[in-house]
Amino acid sequence: MSARDRILGKLRAAAPAQTPVEPDVAGYYARHTLQHALPARLAHFSHMMRAVHTEVIYTRADSWPQALAARAAQAGWRHVLLAPNTAHGARAAQALQGLATPPQLKSYDRPIDDWKAELFHDVDAAFTTTRAGIAETGTLIVWPDADEPRAMSLVPPVHIALFDASRLYENFYQAVSTEGWANGLPTNSLLISGPSKTADIQQTLAYGAHGPRELIVLAIVPDDIDLAELEAAQ
């Protein structure tokens, strides 16, 4: 008899016969989900994100490439990793190449095995999109794919995340249920709530433990929301 059969046998012999009480997860979140309008949700998202050392830049659908380029110029990144095959990647590349001293652009066009050392040592920042956000906890939902693989939001010291703020859920439950995640998840899916950090040395918080030291969120705010009011709502 295999270990599997022995373990399952022991458990089956002991499992209770009566039907257990079904937890009412949906009911709990129906009662505990706030119904804030987008500006309030977005203000809370930014508050939570900034509280854990994330830089949130409010921008617009037509001007975010310029905001990205300005931030890149300010930081002086020399090597930026992005996905030129995607629409947002192409716009980002165009804006960055327009800088007076443009960074060298890299793309994740080979399996990691073929350029591990370069990825680890010669990329200053990576630019990716995000799937959605969660207001309650200040969280980005990222589903890496062939164009923007998993390591892009992990290995380079800076991660710049493009976030369509109209896709901001109130909480994790709303995201999972609205998007029907139970029907299938990708190879890897992530919630990201700030840059990498640790408090393992005498409870002292330090950023950039293993992943990015900096997380920069380029939040594309719908045109009907006033940016100055949004900042003031913080």
Binding site: V52, L185, N188, L190, I192, G194, A199, G211
Partner: peptide, 24 residues
């Protein structure tokens, strides 16, 4: 655990690297 609203990462792994994917 640590009095954090949420951790930095919640990592959901559902399968090994698929054809066309470049890492994992």
């Amino acid at each position: 655990a640590t009095g954090q609203a949420i951790t930095t990462y919640f990592n959901m792994i559902s399968r090994p690297r698929q054809p066309g994917e470049k890492d994992g």
